[in-house]
Amino acid sequence: MTRKLGYREAMREAMHEALASDPRVFLMGEDVGRYGGTYAFSKGFLDEFGPERIRDTPLSELAFVGAGIGAALGGLRPIVEVMTVNFSLLALDQIVNTAALYRHMSGGQFSVPLVIRMATGAGRQVAAQHSHSLEGWYAHIPGIKVLAPATVEDARGMLAPALADPDPVVIFEHAGLFNLEGEVPDDCTVDIAGAKVRRGGTAVSIITYGGSLPKALAAAETLAAEGVDAEVVDLRVLRPLDTATIVASVAKCRRAVIVDEGWRSGSLAAEVMARIMENAFFELDAPVARVCSEEVPIPYARHLEEAALPQPEKIVAAVKGLFA
């Protein structure tokens, strides 16, 4: 059986389930309590679970993310909500220098079972300091897992395996997806092991993640109407990358376009391209293309912001370029 669910409600249900089923789980972040969560993901939680487990924090990203690491080392299973990836830069030291390193650096003595959730991405006219897409930066770091739930099913299902993971997991929730609706199975169990093919096809492999997934699917529909049967791969897990699924799709379609809201230089898209070169070079009938954000701070004005970001039309054009 399936049911209709929104992305916000899916996240809320996932956290509710975690809080209700495991006393070690608690939620900590800015305005997660009385305010109900910046995006209303935790509305009503304070009344239900109390202020010990639904912790409003001061505007101290470094301290409360670090405190989440300490609490995880101390036996709890914290969900730390950072309002947006932009503010996570204030906590980067604790994530990169502590959470990611502790297990290896301690010779396996200390694991950090921490989940950090943060909103990411542009597209809402909130300007340069609220529009970063830095998933690729985080995916660079050994020691953390990086997830990008791009469907309602993943929004509902990824938190549980993330919390069960003995090591730090960072979840990127693209703000452009928050009003997404979808059908989810009643038993919404998903893995956090690899990529998924969201639309089967044979002519071109469009590889993407997060907020760009609906754009890639829209582009695939347009292409289908023009007789180009595109496959869409949702990476889902940005670290460790699922090379096998990428290579299988590219080997089948023989053409590939990577869609990544990150800036082009040093992007996750570049890493995906590199893996294709390493593993599927001789399967290709055309150079691999990519659609990334323009290398500019994301502007406020709507027309400029739209021009800066990957769009379905740009994806369609990139695909057509492979057949030119």
Partner: peptide
Amino acid sequence: LPLATGLALAA
């Protein structure tokens, strides 16, 4: 320091 604060929170 943040780590210690979290260890104390867990305790």
